Amino acid sequence: MELGRLGVWISTDRLDAAQLKALLKTVEGHGYSAFWYPESRGYESMALGGFLLANSQKLIIGSSIANIYARDAFTAKRGLATLNALHGGRFILGLGVSHVPMVEGLRGHSYDKPIPAMRGYLDGMAKAGQEDLPVVLAALGPKMLELAAARTRGAVPYNVTPEHTAQAAKILGPGRILAVEQKVCVETDKAKARALGRKELARYMTLTNYVNNWLRLGFTEAELKDGGSDRFIDAMVLSGDAATVKAGLRAHFTAGATHVCIQPVHADGDFAARDTMLAALADS
């Protein structure tokens, strides 16, 4: 599997079949190598992966991430094998431990300690067949990154900075995928860009896993209050003209990323703005 330089990360739950097909055509038409999608409260990850594969030609389709509490390890391994067997080896399974509200509040499971839970899940997947299939982990902290390096093809960090990318690259070592998600807003009005960024980030700022990682990266508790400081928002959402945003994306590659998946930040339903950004950043 050749995971190219640039991919696209899109929250898919609010898009219907026609909108997803149009988006895939846009992403593929601009030459992006991969399309990444989450698993939240809407579409089930494997079923959506099959739809995205069936409606694209060459794109690598990646879950970012499939929740390990949503299906057992055997099912995840067989789903991964099935999608690759039926769609030309274009699916990469990103796995994550998710967050307490999504596990206990939504699904009614007990949220276990992340590292033992993920290690046990990978052990279960190994028992479901010995195929060498592409798995990566949603890894933020050093211990999860170490597990990703030891047991999978790499990591798909989310809501991070180039400083985190450099740390992750060092822990993962050579030969591992480091596919970093980066939010972007091609908008020269800084106040407008920051307002869009704060709205986009609001749901993440209540989740312990992200907050702890931001604190590790040097942001203060004060900077994470009241929607986030300007410094924090500017780090999480690259904004400005296309050249400025491209420079920010290159910082991840300089830090050691092997792949960057951009997530356009725009007003709700403004697909024209989304697609304009995808066009403007395709040659980053």
Score class of each variant (00 low, 15 high):
R5P: 04
S11H: 12
L15Q: 04
L15E: 01
Q19G: 14
K21N: 02
K21M: 12
L23I: 03
L23C: 07
L24S: 10
T26H: 14
T26L: 12
V27L: 12
E28T: 09
G29S: 11
S33A: 15
S33M: 06
S33N: 09
W36F: 13
E39M: 11
G42F: 14
Y43L: 11
L48Y: 00
G49P: 02
A54V: 02
Q57H: 08
L59A: 10
I60G: 00
I60L: 15
I61C: 06
S63V: 08
N67V: 14
I68A: 09
Y69F: 13
Y69G: 07
A70P: 01
R71Y: 06
R71I: 07
D72H: 13
A73W: 06
A76E: 01
K77F: 02
L80A: 08
T82L: 14
N84M: 11
H87A: 06
G89A: 15
R90N: 06
L93N: 03
G94M: 10
L95V: 03
G96D: 04
V100D: 02
V103F: 07
G105T: 04
G105D: 05
H109D: 06
P114D: 14
I115P: 02
P116S: 10
P116H: 13
M118N: 05
M118D: 02
G120D: 06
G124C: 07
M125G: 08
A128L: 08
G129I: 13
G129S: 06
Q130P: 02
Q130Y: 04
E131G: 14
V135N: 06
V135A: 14
A138M: 11
P142S: 14
P142H: 10
K143P: 03
M144K: 07
E146S: 13
A149M: 11
A150T: 05
R151F: 08
T152K: 12
T152C: 11
G154N: 05
P157W: 06
E163W: 00
A169E: 03
G175M: 12
G175N: 10
R176W: 04
A179F: 00
V180N: 00
Q182G: 06
Q182L: 10
Q182R: 15
E187F: 03
D189S: 12
K192N: 10
E200W: 07
Y204C: 09
Y204W: 13
M205N: 10
T206M: 13
T208Q: 10
T208K: 15
N209M: 15
N209F: 10
Y210G: 05
Y210W: 05
A222C: 04
K225S: 13
K225R: 15
K225T: 11
K225G: 05
D226K: 15
G228Q: 04
D230I: 07
I233W: 00
M236I: 04
L238K: 08
A242H: 01
A251W: 00
F253L: 12
A255H: 01
G256A: 11
A257V: 06
A257W: 01
A257S: 10
V260L: 12
V260K: 09
V260M: 09
P264E: 05
H266T: 14
F271N: 13
F271T: 07
A272I: 05
A273W: 03
D275M: 07
A282T: 02
D283G: 08
